[in-house]
């Protein structure tokens, strides 16, 4: 039973590492800062959460040791990483970094022009 659980946790850790890798490839391959930020914040958050959760469950099953720091880390990454992504994107938009030329719509543009003309 324990061995089966350990295999599952190992699979979850490998899955988390794979998601992180996909996020990193996305950062390299995607064309502009907004799509890159999308890949980085989503991929890194989910990958890290999977790895941390598997580590927490592993120590729980293996040693019977509930590591509160890992739980706090999971909550903290889950809460703050998307906000960091949001702030980076917003800082880029407000300092005038252009969107990828093939991107379809820019919903913020009208609002920004309105705010500037006032």
């Amino acid at each position: 039973m324990k061995e089966n659980l350990e295999i599952i946790f190992a699979a979850v850790i490998v899955l988390g590492a794979f998601v992180n890798l996909v996020g990193a490839i996305g950062v390299i391959r995607l064309p502009d800062i907004y799509t890159r930020n999308h890949a980085a914040s989503k991929g890194a958050t989910l990958g890290t959460l999977l790895i941390l959760t598997a580590a927490f469950l592993f120590f729980w099953v293996e040693d019977g040791h509930m590591n509160a720091r890992l739980v706090l880390g999971i909550i903290f990454v889950f809460v703050t990483a998307p906000v960091a992504g949001h702030l980076i994107s917003r800082a880029a938009y407000n300092s005038g970094v252009p969107l990828w030329e093939k991107s379809g719509q820019d919903a913020l543009k009208a609002k920004k022009q309105k705010a500037q003309s006032k």
Binding site: V79, T80, V83, L87
Partner: peptide, 19 residues
């Protein structure tokens, strides 16, 4: 968004620093 998340995260950080 930043201010709301700060209000939540600050307690986690302070609790962890005390720990």
């Amino acid at each position: 968004i930043l201010q709301t998340i700060t209000k939540i995260a600050i307690f986690i950080i302070l609790a962890f620093s005390l720990h």
